[in-house]
Design a protein around this nucleic acid. Sequence first.
DNA 1: TTTCTAGTTAGACGTTTGTCTAAATAGAAG
DNA 2: CTTCTATTTAGACAAACGTCTAACTAGAAA
Lengths: 94, 94
Amino acid sequence: MAMSDTLKAISDPVRRQILNLLKEEPKPAGAIAAQFDLTAATVSYHLKLLKQAHLITERREKNFIYYDLNASVFEEVLSWIYSLGIGADSHDKN
Amino acid sequence: MAMSDTLKAISDPVRRQILNLLKEEPKPAGAIAAQFDLTAATVSYHLKLLKQAHLITERREKNFIYYDLNASVFEEVLSWIYSLGIGADSHDKN
DNA sequence: TTTCTAGTTAGACGTTTGTCTAAATAGAAG
DNA sequence: CTTCTATTTAGACAAACGTCTAACTAGAAA
């Protein structure tokens, strides 16, 4: 179930771009929405799906809701991809 | 465009299972379809999407069409995931 | 050439998805 | 308390998706 949710979540380009935006630091919903030619409601819908997939977490501060990336859920996806036998390229952290 | 196609393709559980089936060796469409409670037409539809995403290749032999896994297209996906800053776990080939 | 076999293509149909507008909520500020 | 700000929720809707049945195609076999 978990991996299915993760892959469904990142199958949409808007949601992938949201993750890219959160790579550096947490951002409030408004700042995220400002990067797209979409209504705040639509971006909120995408944030909800990312949250349900545990790819982001939220934290309230003043009037703002900050969203933060949680890339750890990708572990399962990586394991699956590698189980298929990936090419000889190196994607490790060294 | 390429990564989008890849992620869209693997967002469906049937298509992921097809890739799992092809991990060991190429298989004809009929043998693949036999693993699912779906019509041959439906499985053919999934094979077409996987083929368009270059996740599989096909080769005709006698009356059969053999499908073979091409996991190399995952490279781009892996690069993106790692660019998000993944956890400390090791997924390399050593 | 006719027929059989493996698989695809076409068309229909219900479900899911992504988007919008309008209304609602939570909390900050006055 | 009232109002303003940031964001979500509800409802509607078109487009995309996954599935089926029926018809078609490519090639093997007889």
